[in-house]
Amino acid sequence: MHLAYPAVLAALLFCTGLYGVLARRNAILVLMSVELMLNAVNLNLVAFDVWLSKAARDTLHSGQALTLFTIAIAAAEIGIGLAIVLAVHRNRGTSDIDKLRDTAEGHETVGPDSDALTAGPADGAGKAEATA
Protein backbone atom coordinates (compact mmCIF):
# COMPACT_ATOMS: atom_id res chain seq x y z
CA MET A 1 0.00 0.00 0.00
CA HIS A 2 1.26 3.46 -0.80
CA LEU A 3 2.24 5.19 2.43
CA ALA A 4 0.66 8.44 1.25
CA TYR A 5 -2.87 7.06 1.70
CA PRO A 6 -2.84 6.76 5.51
CA ALA A 7 -0.59 9.80 5.87
CA VAL A 8 -2.94 12.04 3.85
CA LEU A 9 -6.00 10.67 5.63
CA ALA A 10 -4.35 11.37 8.99
CA ALA A 11 -3.48 14.92 7.93
CA LEU A 12 -7.04 15.58 6.77
CA LEU A 13 -8.55 14.15 9.97
CA PHE A 14 -6.18 16.23 12.07
CA CYS A 15 -7.18 19.42 10.28
CA THR A 16 -10.85 18.51 10.65
CA GLY A 17 -10.32 18.20 14.38
CA LEU A 18 -8.39 21.48 14.35
CA TYR A 19 -11.34 23.23 12.72
CA GLY A 20 -13.68 21.72 15.30
CA VAL A 21 -11.53 22.84 18.24
CA LEU A 22 -11.34 26.38 16.89
CA ALA A 23 -14.90 26.78 15.69
CA ARG A 24 -17.06 24.93 18.19
CA ARG A 25 -18.65 26.67 21.13
CA ASN A 26 -19.93 23.82 23.27
CA ALA A 27 -17.17 22.34 25.43
CA ILE A 28 -18.21 18.74 24.74
CA LEU A 29 -18.06 19.31 20.99
CA VAL A 30 -14.53 20.64 21.50
CA LEU A 31 -13.69 17.41 23.33
CA MET A 32 -15.03 15.42 20.36
CA SER A 33 -12.78 17.37 18.02
CA VAL A 34 -9.81 16.68 20.28
CA GLU A 35 -10.64 12.98 19.98
CA LEU A 36 -10.53 13.31 16.20
CA MET A 37 -7.08 14.90 16.37
CA LEU A 38 -5.79 12.15 18.67
CA ASN A 39 -7.14 9.51 16.30
CA ALA A 40 -5.37 11.11 13.37
CA VAL A 41 -2.11 10.84 15.29
CA ASN A 42 -2.90 7.19 16.08
CA LEU A 43 -3.43 6.40 12.41
CA ASN A 44 -0.08 7.98 11.58
CA LEU A 45 1.65 5.96 14.31
CA VAL A 46 0.14 2.68 13.14
CA ALA A 47 0.88 3.29 9.46
CA PHE A 48 4.51 4.22 10.08
CA ASP A 49 4.93 1.31 12.47
CA VAL A 50 3.68 -1.14 9.85
CA TRP A 51 6.00 0.44 7.29
CA LEU A 52 9.05 0.43 9.54
CA SER A 53 8.48 -3.07 10.91
CA LYS A 54 8.83 -4.39 7.35
CA ALA A 55 11.28 -1.91 5.85
CA ALA A 56 13.74 -1.28 8.66
CA ARG A 57 13.31 -4.44 10.75
CA ASP A 58 12.10 -2.43 13.71
CA THR A 59 11.33 -5.11 16.25
CA LEU A 60 10.31 -2.77 19.04
CA HIS A 61 6.91 -2.00 17.46
CA SER A 62 7.19 1.41 19.02
CA GLY A 63 4.41 2.87 16.91
CA GLN A 64 1.80 0.39 18.06
CA ALA A 65 2.92 0.59 21.68
CA LEU A 66 2.65 4.38 21.52
CA THR A 67 -0.78 4.04 19.92
CA LEU A 68 -1.97 1.96 22.84
CA PHE A 69 -0.55 4.52 25.26
CA THR A 70 -2.24 7.32 23.35
CA ILE A 71 -5.58 5.53 23.48
CA ALA A 72 -5.26 5.05 27.25
CA ILE A 73 -4.25 8.67 27.78
CA ALA A 74 -7.15 9.80 25.60
CA ALA A 75 -9.53 7.79 27.77
CA ALA A 76 -8.11 9.45 30.88
CA GLU A 77 -8.30 12.84 29.18
CA ILE A 78 -11.93 12.41 28.25
CA GLY A 79 -12.80 11.41 31.82
CA ILE A 80 -11.05 14.40 33.37
CA GLY A 81 -12.36 16.73 30.68
CA LEU A 82 -15.94 15.66 31.21
CA ALA A 83 -15.54 16.02 34.98
CA ILE A 84 -14.30 19.58 34.46
CA VAL A 85 -17.11 20.39 32.03
CA LEU A 86 -19.72 19.01 34.41
CA ALA A 87 -18.26 20.97 37.34
CA VAL A 88 -18.31 24.16 35.25
CA HIS A 89 -21.86 23.45 34.16
CA ARG A 90 -22.90 22.90 37.77
CA ASN A 91 -21.32 26.16 38.93
CA ARG A 92 -22.08 28.41 35.99
CA GLY A 93 -25.10 26.80 34.39
CA THR A 94 -23.47 26.69 30.97
CA SER A 95 -20.95 24.68 29.01
CA ASP A 96 -20.46 27.45 26.48
CA ILE A 97 -16.75 28.19 26.39
CA ASP A 98 -17.29 31.66 24.97
CA LYS A 99 -18.90 32.68 28.25
CA LEU A 100 -16.10 31.42 30.50
CA ARG A 101 -13.97 34.54 30.40
CA ASP A 102 -12.52 34.68 33.91
CA THR A 103 -8.95 34.62 32.70
CA ALA A 104 -9.50 36.69 29.55
CA GLU A 105 -7.72 40.01 29.33
CA GLY A 106 -9.96 43.02 29.43
CA HIS A 107 -13.16 41.15 30.13
CA GLU A 108 -14.29 44.00 32.36
CA THR A 109 -14.50 46.22 29.31
CA VAL A 110 -16.09 43.61 27.07
CA GLY A 111 -18.62 42.21 29.51
CA PRO A 112 -20.69 45.22 30.61
CA ASP A 113 -21.33 46.44 27.09
CA SER A 114 -24.04 43.92 26.50
CA ASP A 115 -25.52 44.53 29.93
CA ALA A 116 -25.31 48.31 29.85
CA LEU A 117 -28.17 48.51 27.38
CA THR A 118 -30.49 46.50 29.57
CA ALA A 119 -29.21 47.61 32.97
CA GLY A 120 -30.02 51.29 32.62
CA PRO A 121 -30.63 53.35 35.74
CA ALA A 122 -30.40 50.39 38.13
CA ASP A 123 -26.66 50.44 37.64
CA GLY A 124 -25.70 52.23 40.85
CA ALA A 125 -27.91 50.15 43.10
CA GLY A 126 -26.74 46.98 41.45
CA LYS A 127 -23.10 47.93 41.92
CA ALA A 128 -23.61 48.52 45.60
CA GLU A 129 -25.37 45.22 45.86
CA ALA A 130 -22.66 43.34 44.03
CA THR A 131 -19.96 44.68 46.31
CA ALA A 132 -21.93 44.04 49.48
Binding site: D123, G126, A130
Partner: peptide, 24 residues
Protein backbone atom coordinates in the same frame (compact mmCIF):
# COMPACT_ATOMS: atom_id res chain seq x y z
CA UNK B 1 -26.78 37.08 54.46
CA UNK B 2 -24.79 37.90 51.36
CA UNK B 3 -26.06 36.09 48.36
CA UNK B 4 -24.21 38.39 45.99
CA UNK B 5 -20.86 36.84 46.79
CA UNK B 6 -21.94 33.24 46.57
CA UNK B 7 -19.95 31.26 44.02
CA UNK B 8 -23.09 29.72 42.60
CA UNK B 9 -24.35 33.03 41.28
CA UNK B 10 -23.60 32.99 37.58
CA UNK B 11 -21.60 35.91 36.21
CA UNK B 12 -21.86 38.23 39.20
CA UNK B 13 -18.12 37.88 39.75
CA UNK B 14 -17.08 38.11 36.15
CA UNK B 15 -18.77 41.43 35.55
CA UNK B 16 -18.48 43.46 38.73
CA UNK B 17 -20.10 46.46 37.13
CA UNK B 18 -22.41 44.78 34.73
CA UNK B 19 -23.56 42.14 37.10
CA UNK B 20 -26.08 44.62 38.26
CA UNK B 21 -29.43 44.01 36.73
CA UNK B 22 -28.58 40.40 36.42
CA UNK B 23 -28.02 40.10 40.15
CA UNK B 24 -31.66 40.98 40.66
Amino acid sequence: AATGGSPSVPDSRNHPIGGTARSH
